[in-house]
Design a protein around this nucleic acid. Sequence first.
DNA 1: CTGTTAGCGCATTCAT
DNA 2: ATGAATGCGCTAACAG
Lengths: 331, 331
Amino acid sequence: MVTMNDVARAAGVSVMTVSNVLNGRPNVSTPTRDRVLEVVSDLGYQMNLTARHLRAGRTDSIAMVVPNFNGYFGELADDLTHLLQDSGRHLVLESTSARPDAELQAFSMARLRMHDAAIISVSGLSADEVARLRPLVPVVLLGEREMPDDLDHLQLDNVTGARIATEHLISRGATRIAMLGGSSNPEHDMSYRRRCGWQEALEAAGLEHDAELVATLERFSPSEAHGALKELRARTNFDGLFCATDTAAQGAVAALHDAGLRVPEDVQVVGFDNLASSRFSPPCGLTSVGPELGELPRRVLAMLERRMSDPDAPPQHVVLPLHLFARGTTR
Amino acid sequence: MVTMNDVARAAGVSVMTVSNVLNGRPNVSTPTRDRVLEVVSDLGYQMNLTARHLRAGRTDSIAMVVPNFNGYFGELADDLTHLLQDSGRHLVLESTSARPDAELQAFSMARLRMHDAAIISVSGLSADEVARLRPLVPVVLLGEREMPDDLDHLQLDNVTGARIATEHLISRGATRIAMLGGSSNPEHDMSYRRRCGWQEALEAAGLEHDAELVATLERFSPSEAHGALKELRARTNFDGLFCATDTAAQGAVAALHDAGLRVPEDVQVVGFDNLASSRFSPPCGLTSVGPELGELPRRVLAMLERRMSDPDAPPQHVVLPLHLFARGTTR
DNA sequence: CTGTTAGCGCATTCAT
DNA sequence: ATGAATGCGCTAACAG
């Protein structure tokens, strides 16, 4: 393993000079710099970033901790990567350890200190686990769970969004509206809140909203949604369907088709999140509620940058407004 | 910042004893261990993993370097995370720096040394950049580009896969078959190879395969595919369409629908990759070629584990066979 | 412009 | 069963 010391010796300079060259610091003469760079190249030297981090306390990396990589968070991560492109920092994705094993969680949290900042989806975490992180690294929380007030937190306006989605179905003539991925358990933060909005809209319109109309989901995958919708259909009929996520909606639309129902003629469908891929979800786009295009990544980054530049700024709690994007699954 | 030293002092022991406790080493008496753990908890101590890494040379993490997080690689990463779940290691995703700026690339590569091993998609990398990595960290390459022979490399059987896809369209009665996302430039590795397979099948069947039938793509997003397909349709007619990726196929199916064409009645469509989400791609699944379910992550991990356990094992070059998964977009 | 000194927080080695 | 010394590879602070 070739170290900075090896380079220094081979170039006949001190390690400090090598360090200065490699970090583009001034106060290095051109001949010296050239000689160092040549040796670096000859020896195939690569800086040990771990050592640099230990000493300099900086990694130029931002961690994003998510429950899964594909789908909603994958899209967000790609957007963030793009926004960070010219900033000299870059995004690193880590998944929350699936098992809530205490020791694993501890390491999971410790790992975030390997980065300059962290964006954390709170799906699987407890409040005090997250609270311990605050003094160690700038953090922005993402997601629907209640979290300590002293941490920056960005979430979607779930209840209003779900209400808008359901109102859209009503305004397009749906009279019996089911929900896929709802929950009546307040601990299921996202599922619960979106169900509340669904219910509000139905109550206001004088439509039914009994438990029979709600199917629960755990992972919100197309495959799981596909199965759940079949069961829901076996139980009851409906001409409108509000899905808690676009990913689930994808499986639902497929299941409706399998059952010989036409979308939107027989059943209208609205999703939630407004994924980029929903715009072209066959055959002609999925109607969905979500933030304005690009709004989410922009706000996340703004909050993080504020926190990084002023660790003592007062905590910020942002609720992102949502809009309806009408496409082919509603009339 | 509370360090191991602080814990040691507060517990009235040496740092070494704290280290022993925290790493679950034997030779620590129960009363001592309990005292240490209590102080750890009281002080909210979190191990500095950077320091541990510098000293112990181990992070228990595996880097996966990909051009983008959502879609094909997101699915693979989620599968790998699942497979690694009980191994005490975990997967970290990094994106290849978009700009091929030499200095950035250098740091990009150096960053991989912060992990015990790396899985690298070779999309944006040059051969010698990757070659430098070999002695530093166990690496498995992923993807269609030609790479140094001395590195482990896993790729899909692109040409055969594309041929199978096109043959399927022919066997289902398509007589004029276009390709979305093909290239005649051998440097566009994946696009080129999949086009070759398409062409082979058409030649064998005595069907046309002129350049007019091929549309190129850069990012393979649904949105880009949607636009490219409209242009392709303006240029020529076809009753079969082979798409270089499932993601592109999604946009293509939407564009066909927009143009008033029915799938599969008027145009049959086959994708490539067999994404999990393609199974439920509305309305009734996307026909696609790809590896057997779960085969790709399993093989990647097997190759990586072999390399990690024996750094001097002879290099392995694997070409994964592909299969057709017939669904709703073909008759 | 270049070199010297010191130490980031932890684990390996060897002593007790 | 516990502790002291040493150094992983790098950089901040200062000296020359």
